[in-house]
C-alpha cells in the first residue's frame, strides 16, 4: 500500500506545517457576527500603525460567531488575546467562569470599554407601505415584525430592550402595560431566526414581514449590500444605546507574551483612525469629535437613546436575569394562555 503511506506522510507533513503557523506571534480577536467588515479594515490599519511604530509585523486572526457561543469557546479554552463581543453580559460570563479577565474589566478602557456604539432602527420596504413610523405601529393589525430570538442572538436582546424602553416611556413606567406591549410585538413575529443575519435574510431574500428590527450598522449595510432601491431605514422616536464592549484576556496574553501588542490593539480603537474606521462601518464612535472625516457622522440620525444602565433596566447585571434567563420575562411571552 505505498499510496496510503504517501498519503499518511503528506498528512503528517501538512499538519506539522500548520502548527508553527499557529504558534507564531499573532493576535486572536474573538468577536461576534456583524463586526466582520469593521475588523477586516481595522486589522489592516492596526498592523500598519504597529509596524510604523517600529515593531515587527503582527497578524490578527479573527473568529466570528454568535456572541454567547463565542464567549463559551473562550471559557472552554480558546486562547483569545482580546474579545470584542456584543454584550457586556458575555464578557462578564468569561470573567466569572475563568480567572482570565478581572471582574472590573469595564473600568480599564474609556467609555466603559465600549469604543463604539450602535442602536436599533427599523428597516422597511420601499415607500414604507404600512406607514411604520414608531414602535407603536409595530403592533397594528396586519403588521409582521422580523426580529431574531433574544435567547440565541445578542443583537436581538437590544431589539427587545429598545422596545421596552419605548413602552416604558409611553406608559409612564407601568411595568404591566410595558410587558404587554413588548409581548404584543413578539406575537407579530412570524419567524424567529436564531441570528441577526438570519433575520435579515428572511426579511430581504424571502420577502417575509413588513419591518425588520436591526442594528443601525446592519441596516445600513443591508441597504448597501442588498438593494438601496428596495428598502428604507425608519428611525423610531426612542431607542436603546447598544454598547458592544471590548476586553483584554489577561490570562491568555500573559501566557502567550502578547500583552503589549494586545493592549495597543484595543487602545488604537480609541484613536482618531480607529474611531473613523468605526464610523465608516456605521458604528457610532464613542469619541465622535476625533473622527477625521466629520461627514461620516452626518449619516447618524438624531434619536433619543436610553442606556442599559438606566434605572428601568439597572445595567446588564440586572437586565440579563430579569428578561432573558430561563423563565425570565421573555419566556413568559410565548406561554400559551390557559
Amino acid at each position: 500500500m505505498p499510496r496510503f503511506r504517501t498519503l499518511a506522510l503528506a498528512l503528517l507533513v501538512s499538519v506539522g506545517a500548520a502548527m508553527p503557523a499557529l504558534a507564531q506571534q499573532t493576535l486572536l480577536n474573538v468577536s461576534y457576527d456583524p463586526t466582520r467588515e469593521l475588523y477586516r479594515d481595522y486589522n489592516a490599519a492596526f498592523s500598519k500603525h504597529w509596524q510604523a511604530e517600529g515593531h515587527d509585523a503582527v497578524a490578527v486572526q479573527m473568529s466570528h460567531g454568535g456572541s454567547g457561543a463565542q464567549a463559551r469557546t473562550v471559557i472552554d479554552g480558546l486562547d483569545a488575546d482580546v474579545v470584542t463581543l456584543a454584550l457586556q453580559a458575555d464578557i462578564d460570563a468569561i470573567a466569572k467562569a475563568t480567572t482570565k479577565i478581572p471582574a472590573d474589566w469595564r473600568a480599564r478602557l474609556p467609555h466603559n470599554s465600549a469604543p463604539y456604539a450602535s442602536t436599533i432602527v427599523f428597516l422597511v420596504r420601499k415607500d414604507n407601505p404600512k406607514g411604520i413610523k414608531d414602535w407603536g405601529d409595530l403592533v397594528k393589525d396586519g403588521v409582521e415584525v422580523i426580529t431574531p430570538n433574544p435567547k440565541t442572538s445578542g443583537g436581538a436582546r437590544w431589539n427587545y430592550l429598545a422596545a421596552w424602553a419605548y413602552a416604558n416611556k409611553a406608559f409612564g413606567n407601568d411595568e404591566a402595560k410595558t410587558k404587554e406591549f413588548v409581548g404584543e410585538i413578539y406575537r407579530h413575529v412570524p419567524v424567529l431566526d436564531t441570528g441577526a443575519r438570519g433575520s435579515t435574510t428572511t426579511f430581504v431574500q424571502r420577502g417575509i414581514g413588513d419591518v425588520l428590527l436591526a442594528w443601525e450598522n446592519e441596516a445600513f449595510l443591508a441597504i448597501e449590500e442588498l438593494g438601496p432601491d428596495q428598502f428604507e431605514i425608519v428611525v423610531p422616536s426612542i431607542s436603546i444605546l447598544a454598547e458592544p464592549p471590548v476586553a483584554l484576556v489577561d490570562g491568555n496574553v500573559d501566557a502567550k507574551g502578547t500583552r503589549e501588542v494586545a493592549e495597543a490593539y484595543l487602545n488604537y480603537l480609541y484613536s482618531p483612525e480607529g474611531q473613523t474606521i468605526a464610523a465608516k462601518h456605521f458604528y457610532r464612535p464613542s469619541e465622535p469629535e476625533t473622527v477625521t472625516d466629520q461627514a461620516l457622522l452626518q449619516r447618524f440620525p438624531d434619536v433619543e437613546l436610553v442606556s442599559i444602565d438606566d434605572a428601568q433596566f439597572g445595567g446588564w447585571e440586572k437586565a440579563q436575569p430579569t428578561h432573558f434567563a430561563d423563565g425570565g420575562v421573555f419566556d413568559t411571552i410565548f406561554k400559551p394562555a390557559n
Partner: peptide, 15 residues
Amino acid sequence: PLLIVIRLEEFNYAG
C-alpha cells in the same frame, strides 16, 4: 435541539 442551543446561550451547560 434549538432548546439545547438556547440553554447553552444562557451558559447553562447542565440544562
